[in-house]
């Protein structure tokens, strides 16, 4: 049986936890050590859907940037979904994520989008206000995630899988 595969790109500023979210989802691991991603790392995860065939998410963990350069745009080709990632403790990373979304829209006008606001385990130190997230929730799905504890991680990707399958 061939499982339907879809490309999902992780987009966000450096140090927001994109690689950690993928490691949590795919390998159930977490490392405290920050190691910047160069280029791209591709992983995959098969997601079971109730009453449907499973679906494979091919996850592209793209090097963190506040803006997309030519190489970043190159990596996005063929993507069906974009997971924007921001660090709740750095309000600027939320602006970067939204900026990346605007830039990517020229190449991927129809790609599904969701926002993961990461580092929920440090929520008491968040700069991103709940009111800001409430406002954003009116235009796109927003997940509060922690790569350390795993909170919200599966939910963010399961949401993509469900939307891609329908």
């Amino acid at each position: 049986m061939t499982v339907q595969a879809h490309k999902v790109c992780m987009l966000g500023d450096f140090g927001v936890g994109k690689t950690s979210l993928v490691a949590r989802l795919v390998r159930s691991t977490f490392s405290e050590k920050y190691l910047t991603t160069i280029g791209v790392k591709v992983d995959s995860k098969e997601v079971a859907l109730p009453g449907r065939e499973p679906l494979k998410l091919v996850i592209w963990d793209i090097a963190g940037r506040s803006a997309l350069d030519a190489l970043g745009m190159h990596y996005l080709r063929g993507a069906a979904a974009l997971l924007l990632v921001a660090d709740g403790m750095r309000e600027g990373s939320l602006s970067s994520a939204l900026n990346l979304l605007m830039q990517s829209r020229s190449l991927l006008p129809d790609a599904l989008v969701a926002l993961a606001v990461n580092k929920l385990d440090l929520v008491e130190r968040w700069e991103v206000a709940p009111a800001t997230l409430a406002e954003l929730r009116r235009s796109l799905p927003v997940f509060e995630t922690s790569a350390l504890s795993g909170d919200g991680v599966e939910a963010a990707f399961a949401d993509f899988a469900a939307r891609l399958a329908s």
Binding site: V40, Y75, G78
Partner: peptide
């Protein structure tokens, strides 16, 4: 190369 056309040359730099 998922969802990329296989009838034209492609390159993906710095793949881990």
């Amino acid at each position: 190369f998922i969802w990329l056309p296989l009838d034209s040359d492609q390159d993906i730099p710095f793949v881990e």
